[in-house]
Design a binder for these strands. Structure first.
Length: 822
RNA sequence: GCGGGGGUGCCGGAGCGGUCAAACGGGACAGACUCAAGAUCUGUUGGCUUAGUGCCUACGCAGGUUCAAAUCCUGUCCCUCGCACCA
């Protein structure tokens, strides 16, 4: 009978939807399990294979958890704001809202066709005012709390996006969305969120998370904690703090470098040097258009000097391209003898070097240095600290500076505050009004949501500026003329708390009811790609902590466990992308083979966390299997099962359970397949029921169909997961099976030899076995015949009437039978 | 440069101290079924050797630890991903 996967899959999808089978239940007595996949960005292209992989990983787990008596929350929504949609809409000459809602409809249709068991009643899209209302609400709360502030700062600007970017959105000096576009530094006044307030906690709690190690490492590196000393250098009678992790080298300072982007650079530039500095800054801009990687360390003398507080030495201050403006104080003390960057710079500009650490194995003082010496040693040229071990000296010198009130111990982080304003249309309007008299005035809460106006002109610059009704408002404080903020929020703001909104998505009074969030949160299993390690996953963690401190939630971390599915590349090993023309659309596969086959294939050809290349061949094995068992169940008789299958079944239950729990779906599928391959034409109802339950997470539609076929009622996916019956697991049965395998393999081997050597065609096989083993072979005679394709006769060695012309029964040992062929 | 992950048979990919010439799938070859094809089922698929044995060579390369290594350690090469002048 033909396996009509299209009809079967549609049938069961409709049943699930009509009966609302996957609805979560706030009042359940069961243990809760909140499973979440990173919500997609609905593009016009529809779902890609990576989405499919992501959702299958989650759906398998969820179906398994439901069957294991968990009250499951499994929602899906759409990260619908954002630049790509805005750009795509402009290109298609349509409105972003229209473009997005079309894309979302398409996504939903595709996700339903995949048979993912979401509770659709929880869904929402972030571009709707019912959602972004609460973005604005939280923005105001943060503003109130001092967690959001506005400042002029050197910010990253992408010319293609026409907007500023957060630090996290700059990869390799390029825009995260435009690999070919260098990010420019602009000095602009922007909104920032004080993520750095939580740097320490974000770092500390990483270790407690059940997340992939590499993600944790990436976050730790991103947060980048380092301990050091802040030292006050005197410049033009003013104290300037600088940060160093090497206070032990302070006597070796021969110059200072201030970042070329430093906001106070001007103060240091003397009139004589002004032209040179300006020239340098100009050149710097043109250089930034080239390859940042190959950029040399360059700089220019500012004309000013700093006084080293420890020895009162006067050292020149340079402006340099290699100093990061917004890390620590944006200026460094340079110790060319012991830091490679400073060394390179000093060499280039012929600045003197002064070694202050004496290595153990050579005389540094008498050597012309070829590179900086960065290793341990003893202090020299360092006044009263001479002779100290340098590690020791770090402490002693810092203590000394503290005592003199010219230094302190501080901790620095690489993590920057989160720049959240964007000069684009398709995002949440920032609820702030600028009044000439009152300054920055937050929009009153009762006026929320500030709706994104539909009527705008797209072109150069922020489209919101084109709607005067939106822009020109009265000041809420004084009633005078005022202008509305036209920047919108970074869409990462939207995705920082969406997991909370699912739990109460229809609430119009508050972002969510605390009671519901208390029950469901934190997310027990989060699933998504690794590309968000240092963006979404940091923002969401930050947001949770901020909400906790504002009293909205009572937990510390949003995502207890995280699973990263591997990257699925095209068959040529390259990224799947439209421009390369190597994209495989999951829908095409589903139409051709069915969603169960796609799921089974994606999950069985490698562990799901491994990066893989797509290969259409992987479908073949799964498709064969699915067809095979479909056919098998058309004929199957319900009756009795033997001990062998019960042994296999129970072992499978045990193993599959463990393997699903550890995401080793590929191995679980092997066991399930082996089990189904072993089912005979007649099996007991119990065996069939349990087997179908094991199959269900991997082939939800087919398992339902076969469930019905064997006369069972209800939905398999809501039945209880089978329990292992240890008493039915019998190692002896495995051994017996192994004995048959071994014998068959021996016979085949010898048949081969005989054929080769004597050119003899074997017709019959006589087997001599120990009396206690004979039964097993007799019982499995058919199997032996099948495997060897021979007539077989079995004799016990003590059988006096046995036919044994070559006396092969002499060879018989326990576990080893004699064979005679003729 | 720093930090992750990885290099396994014709291919994809398990395995992560002994039970490993290495799960499972694909492919190839052979056989059964069939008028025939497909599907299905069975077997074979590193080399030599052998009436079912024994040996050799193998898990990127080179060493080492161990009675024993695909599995542990060291070095090295290659691929891949993330961060990148953070003082």
């Amino acid at each position: 009978m033909v396996y009509d996967f299209v009809g079967i899959e549609k049938k069961w999808q409709e049943i699930a939807e009509k009966k609302d089978l996957f609805k979560s239940d706030l009042n359940s007595k069961k243990k809760k399990f909140y499973c979440l996949e990173m919500f997609p960005y609905p593009s016009g292209e529809g779902l890609h294979m990576g989405h499919a992989l992501n959702y299958f990983v989650g759906d398998i787990l969820v179906r398994f958890k439901r069957m294991n008596n968990f009250n499951v929350m499994y929602p899906m929504g759409y990260d619908a704001f954002g630049l790509p949609a805005e750009n795509a809409a402009i290109k298609a000459k349509t409105h972003p809202r229209e473009y997005t809602s079309k894309a979302i409809k398409n996504f939903i249709k595709q996700q339903k066709m995949m048979g993912i068991s979401y509770d659709w009643s929880k869904s929402f899209a972030t571009c709707n005012p019912e959602y972004y209302h609460w973005n604005q609400y939280f923005f105001l709360r943060f503003l109130e709390k001092g967690l959001i502030y506005r400042k002029k700062a050197p910010v990253n600007w992408c010319n293609k996006c026409d907007t500023v970017l957060a630090n996290e959105q700059v990869h390799d000096g390029k825009c995260w969305r435009h690999e070919d576009t260098n990010v420019e530094i602009k000095h602009l006044e922007q909104w920032f969120i004080k993520t750095t307030d939580y740097a320490e906690e974000l770092l500390e709690m990483v270790d407690k998370l059940n997340w992939p190690e590499r993600i944790k490492i990436m976050q730790k590196n991103w947060i980048g904690r380092s301990e050091g000393t802040e030292i006050l250098f005197e410049i033009n009678n003013e104290k300037w703090p600088i940060f160093t992790t090497r206070p032990d080298t302070i006597y070796g300072v021969t110059f200072m470098v201030i970042s070329a982007q430093h906001s106070r650079l001007d103060e240091l530039v003397t009139d004589e040097q002004k032209k040179k500095v300006e020239k340098f800054l100009k050149e710097l801009k043109s250089v930034s258009g080239k390859d940042l990687e190959k950029m040399d360390k360059e700089g220019v003398f500012t004309g000013s000097y700093a006084i080293n507080p420890i020895n009162k030495e006067k050292v020149p201050i340079y402006a340099g391209n290699f100093v990061v403006a917004d890390y620590a104080s944006g200026m460094v003390m340079a110790v060319p003898a012991h830091d490679q960057r400073d060394f390179d710079f000093a060499l280039k500009y012929e600045i003197k070097m002064k070694p202050v650490i004496q290595p153990v194995d050579f005389e540094i003082d008498n050597l012309r240095l070829e590179k900086a010496y960065k290793f341990p040693g003893t202090l020299i040229n360092s006044g009263e600290f001479n002779g100290l071990d340098n590690e020791d000296a770090k402490e002693k010198i810092t203590d000394f500076l503290i005592k003199k009130k010219i230094g302190k111990r501080i901790v620095q982080y690489k993590l920057r505050d989160w720049l959240v304003s964007r000069q684009r249309y398709w995002g949440t309007p920032i609820p702030v009004i600028y009044c000439d008299d009152c300054g920055i005035v937050p929009v009153s809460e009762k006026d929320l949501p500030i709706k994104l106006p539909e009527d705008v002109k797209f072109g150069k610059g922020n489209p919101l500026l084109s709607n005067e009704k939106f822009v020109n408002v009265k000041c809420p404080k004084c009633g005078g003329k005022a202008k509305r903020e036209t920047d919108t929020m970074d869409t990462f703001f939207d995705s920082s708390w969406y997991y909370l909104r699912y739990l109460d998505n229809e609430n119009s009074k508050e972002p969510f009811a605390k009671k519901k969030v208390d029950y469901w949160m934190p997310v027990d299993q989060y699933i998504g790609g690794a590309e968000h390690a240092c963006m979404h996953l940091i923002y969401a963690r930050f947001f949770t902590k901020a909400l906790r401190d504002l009293g909205y939630v009572n937990f510390n971390e949003p995502f207890t466990s995280l699973f990263n599915q591997g990257m699925l590349h095209a068959s040529d090993g390259r990224k799947m992308s439209k421009s390369l023309g190597n994209v495989i659309n999951p829908l095409d596969i589903i139409e051709k083979y069915g969603s169960d086959t796609l799921r089974l294939s994606l999950m069985s050809f490698a562990t799901p966390d491994k990066d893989t290349n797509w290969d259409e061949k992987v479908l073949i094995g799964s498709f064969k299997f699915v067809n095979k068992i479909h056919d098998k169940f058309q004929e199957i008789k319900i009756g009795k099962s033997d001990k062998k299958i019960e042994n296999k079944l129970n072992k499978a239950i045990k193993e599959v359970t463990n393997q699903i729990e550890s995401f080793k779906y590929n191995l679980a599928i092997i066991k399930v397949r082996d089990l189904f391959d072993s089912l005979k034409e007649e099996e007991s109802k119990e065996v069939l029921i349990k087997s179908l339950k094991l199959l269900h997470p991997f082939c939800p539609h087919l398992s339902c169909e076969l469930w019905e076929k064997i006369g069972e009622k209800g939905y398999v996916g809501l039945m209880e997961w089978p329990k292992v019956e240890e008493s039915k697991i019998d190692e002896n049965l495995d051994k017996q099976e192994q004995a048959i395998e071994d014998l068959a393999s021996d016979i085949n081997h010898v048949v081969g030899l005989v054929k080769e050597k004597n050119d003899k065609i074997v017709k019959k096989c006589f087997v001599y076995v120990l009396p206690n083993e004979k039964n097993n072979f007799i019982e499995n005679l058919d199997l032996l015949k099948k495997k060897t394709n021979l007539e077989i006769e079995i004799f016990s060695v003590n059988d006096k009437n046995k036919y044994d012309p070559d006396n092969k029964s002499k060879k018989v040992k326990p576990g080893k039978s004699g064979i005679y062929l003729e």
